[in-house]
């Protein structure tokens, strides 16, 4: 599966457009990380726990998007976009979407 955020896959031509595919995940942060974060807010620096959490969550959203594309028998997803939205105070939704296509 080729996944790109350009409108075309460079070096390939699009034969068929299968449609919009999407994947989302909603994650809540846990208490321990929150406490570590409030300590970090005193001295500054990177919140590694949050970075890992977001990396992992975005990867999962992408995987769900790719699974949908596979169901449509596409072999590539083009023009991939990401959005983030806060659902409640402690939870965030990570969302990935793109257009499933057949390329050769």
């Amino acid at each position: 599966m080729i996944v790109v955020n350009t409108e075309m896959v460079p070096g390939y031509t699009i034969r068929e457009v299968k449609g919009l595919v999407q994947g989302n995940t909603i994650r809540a942060k846990h208490m321990g990380r929150d406490i570590a974060a409030s300590f970090k807010n005193l001295i500054g620096g990177e919140l590694k726990g949050y970075t890992e959490l977001l990396t992992e969550a975005r990867r999962q959203a992408l995987e769900r998007m790719i699974a949908q594309a596979e169901q449509l028998e596409a072999n590539a997803v083009v023009n991939v976009r990401f959005t983030t939205s806060a659902v409640t105070q402690g939870a965030a939704e990570l969302y990935a979407y793109g257009t499933a296509v057949v390329v050769e």
């Binding site: 790109v4 350009t6 807010n41 005193l42 500054g44 620096g45 977001l54």
Partner: peptide, 18 residues
């Protein structure tokens, strides 16, 4: 001349200090 194309990403969460 493209052999392979794929999505790459990077993220960072940085906290303020007091």
């Amino acid at each position: 001349s493209v052999e392979q194309a794929g999505l790459v990403s990077g993220e960072a969460v940085i906290a303020t200090d007091y």
